[in-house]
Amino acid sequence: MAGGPLKKKVFAVIFAVWIALWASFIMRELFRKGYFHDYKALLSRGLEGKQSYVTGDRFYEFLTFCNANLPKGATFNFVGVEEGSIDIRRAVYYLYPRLENADPEFILVYDASDARKAGYERYLKLDDRRYILKKRRP
């Protein structure tokens, strides 16, 4: 390296700080934030297993159940999942070509034991807290 000795020292210190922070942030990400655990779990899974892991295995199981039992093009809405949440966005993605709608044919109840809505009846259930309501025919 060339340049004044003071400048060289300043740059060396700045570079050392950069490297120290760089290494510590990677370690923090991997171990304190738990990414290492996630990567280890993801490595042993296939595509669907990975989709299930990132969505949450329990929620993904319900989405798979809905996918298998709702007709394509059907409209749905959720009870028990926060509106506008990432879970809703993931559900909308995985359930397409079924579409989210304010006045749906089906209500997907997730983690709510006795959800009732006028005009809807129980259609199918995965378990006591995860089930589908269907609009009654007039």
Binding site: L42, L43, L47, K50
Partner: peptide
Amino acid sequence: LIKPIESYDAIAIYAIKSKI
């Protein structure tokens, strides 16, 4: 490459369109 698309905007705005 370790995981599928899952972050908010990526899935809500872009991935859904590519799937359609």
